[in-house]
Write a protein that binds this DNA or RNA. Structure first.
Lengths: 204, 204
DNA sequence: CCCTTTCACTAACGGACGTTAGTTTGTTCG
DNA sequence: CGAACAAACTAACGTCCGTTAGTGAAAGGG
């Protein structure tokens, strides 16, 4: 009834975050109970409080960490990308899709459970999402200025592109028919050229 | 303490559905409590059970009704549309967006609260969604067969299109900068032509 | 105008929830 | 090797949950 043999703080903390993410993804934040989480981690519900401050804090931490990683990796990917607008857009699309397919659970939680966040936490995450969107808007603006894109409203277009790309998370299965590269290729073509073929078009 | 003056069954039932939809949309199905719902309707929590069987049934009814309306209206819109693939796709896009912008709350609930449904209810709704998607896949298949579309994978393309169009719900505000017609136009251009302009392209 | 039906009420049940308090035991490090 | 810390335990608190039971007054059709 005291500390258990072989227990390790960091290991338990990591397990809580890993299991918590999976449970919130599968059942929703409100539907997941701390007793359920604790049972899957292999400890008592009260013991969770050695590692988290509140249930709400766990949710915020998970989302916040995800957003920070997304922003950092995106900055890195764009820094490596060429300056030419179409190639730069290709790089953004590839990065966005690969990241989102690999972090499916995090993406779902960050998108679907925002409303469960308290106002201040909510505002923080929304600001980070806005920053992320701004990357794409700026990229599109630059392309329009260079005459590479025929877009009337770069912000709405950015929203449309992001919605389309992120949507791939909802059906993609690693063991499915398509590879990640094929998903990237298909969506890149959609974003760049749409459904209607044109003379002189080059694809792939 | 019996029946209250001016009470009307159908009116209360309608209010429960209307308020319930709004609360589930704003707070999530698990987070919304029946006491909260009852308070906004103006009755006691126990009185809800004169109109609903369980909380779960209320959710299912709301989603099911929405899906039936969506399917019916889509069939009607496609029946009225011309046979030419591009025009047919335009009609689908316009109908999807207008319907989804007008039924924002229903769309959110039907997409985000699916996991709160019991297995059988869940299966029913998923089947209806599949039917809806099939409309677009068939439309794209016909267009590919006619040489009107340059698409490699009509199913994935359909998913991508639907994700993009439905995404407009997340930012659209009736009092915002863009009219519904402008949203339709912008998304139609995106779906048909993408971001990169081509020689001889006609838009609008 | 009465009689049935409808629709609200009050009261409460059993259980689950997030969280706190207090205790005990293993781990770690000077 | 013993003190200080870490991390688990049991027990419980107060609250809220969805839901049921039982009752009585208003509504509405003949």
């Amino acid at each position: 009834m005291g500390r258990t043999v072989g227990s390790s703080g960091p290991r338990t903390a990591a397990a809580i975050r890993r299991v918590g993410l999976r449970l919130i993804y599968r059942r929703g934040f409100e539907a997941m109970t701390l007793r359920e989480l604790a049972a899957e981690v292999g400890i008592q519900a009260a013991s969770l409080y050695n590692h988290i401050r509140t249930k709400q804090d766990l949710l915020f931490d998970l989302i916040h960490e995800h957003m920070e990683a997304l922003l950092a990796q995106t900055q890195a990917a764009l820094a490596d990308a060429p300056a030419e607008p179409v190639e730069r857009l290709r790089a953004f699309i590839a990065h966005h899709i690969v990241y989102h397919l690999e972090k499916k659970q995090e993406v779902f939680v960050a998108n679907f459970e925002l409303r469960a966040l308290e106002p201040q936490h909510y505002a923080t995450i929304i600001a980070m999402r806005r920053t992320y969107e701004e990357n794409l808007v700026a990229l599109l603006d630059a392309g329009v200025a260079a005459g590479a894109f025929g877009i009337r409203d770069t912000r709405i277009t950015a929203y449309a592109i992001l919605a389309m790309l992120t949507g791939a998370c909802t059906w993609y299965k690693p063991e499915g028919r398509l590879t990640k590269a094929e998903v990237v290729e298909l969506h890149t073509d959609m974003v760049l050229y749409g459904c209607v073929p044109h003379s002189g078009e080059k694809r792939g």
